Computed example of a mutant assay.
Amino acid sequence: MRLLFRTAALTFMIDQITKVLVVNVANLRSVGTIDVLPPWLSFRMAWNRGVNFGLFSHDADIMRWVLVALALAISGWVLVWMWRDPPGRWGLMSAGLLVGGALGNVLDRIIYGAVADFLNVTCCGIENPYAFNVADIAIFVGAGGLLLFTGRKPDRKKTP
């Protein structure tokens, strides 16, 4: 479980540091867009009041707290799951990525009222209208890792 907590803490710190640097230090909040590696990568300020890609977005303050409670409940459920049925190293790191990312977005909702998204990747002449952040990447990779690296362990007993 220590590996899970370390991964979660590192993920949370990287997410929050990147948000402070980009949103506040680089002043993306006011500038709106910064081309980093044109045309592939740019920083575009987006305040996400919903879940992924702005789904279930709502300006009502109650929705912010519902999403905070949901993220905390899912994180708690993952922690209990990992404690009861500890997977291997990769499963624990995956859980840490998911929990750290979820808590990073929870802190955004508490501080800003919305999640600070700023990464925008465009490729092959297709304009991507969506932005995301480090926490979103961690949640996505962590959830995928949990699917891949957890579950039933093979039974080592041979049936006669």
Rank of each mutant, 00 (worst) to 15 (best):
W65I: 02
S75I: 04
L37M: 12
I14A: 13
L72A: 00
L70D: 04
N48H: 01
L41R: 00
K157G: 09
I139Q: 13
D61S: 11
G100A: 03
G113H: 09
T11R: 02
W90L: 14
P160C: 03
L37K: 06
G91K: 07
M63K: 11
L37G: 04
D136F: 02
M13N: 15
C124Q: 06
M1C: 14
P160F: 08
W47M: 13
S30R: 14
W65F: 11
G144Q: 14
W77R: 03
E127N: 12
T33Q: 12
G96E: 05
R2Q: 15
M93Q: 13
D85V: 08
F140T: 08
L3Q: 15
T150A: 03
A95I: 03
T18A: 03
D117E: 03
L119N: 02
A138G: 10
I14F: 14
A60T: 13
F149L: 04
T159N: 15
N133R: 00
G88H: 12
R64K: 09
L92A: 12
G50F: 04
P154R: 15
V68F: 06
A138K: 04
R64E: 02
N128S: 07
G151F: 13
R84W: 08
G125S: 00
G142R: 02
D85R: 14
L103Q: 09
A9K: 01
G151D: 04
A114S: 13
L4N: 09
L103V: 10
R6S: 11
V66L: 03
V68G: 01
I34G: 06
T122P: 10
S75T: 07
L67K: 12
L119K: 04
W90G: 11
A26H: 10
V141H: 00
I62Y: 12
L148H: 04
F12M: 05
C124L: 06
D35R: 00
D155G: 05
I62D: 09
S42T: 07
K157M: 11
G32K: 01
F5E: 03
G104Y: 07
P86C: 02
W47D: 12
G32P: 06
T7S: 15
T11Q: 03
K19T: 00
F132N: 05
G88W: 13
V106I: 00
G125P: 00
K153Y: 08
V20F: 12
D108G: 07
T18H: 02
V66D: 00
C123E: 05
M82R: 11
V141W: 01
I137M: 04
R152G: 11
P87N: 11
M82A: 11
R2K: 15
D59K: 09
L10Y: 15
A102T: 07
D85W: 11
F12C: 09
F118R: 00
V121R: 01
P160G: 09
V106A: 02
I74C: 07
K158L: 15
P154T: 13
V23Q: 13
D155S: 07
L146C: 06
L37W: 01
Q16P: 10
F140Y: 06
D35S: 06
G76C: 02
L92I: 08
G88P: 11
S30H: 14
V80M: 06
I17C: 08
M13F: 15
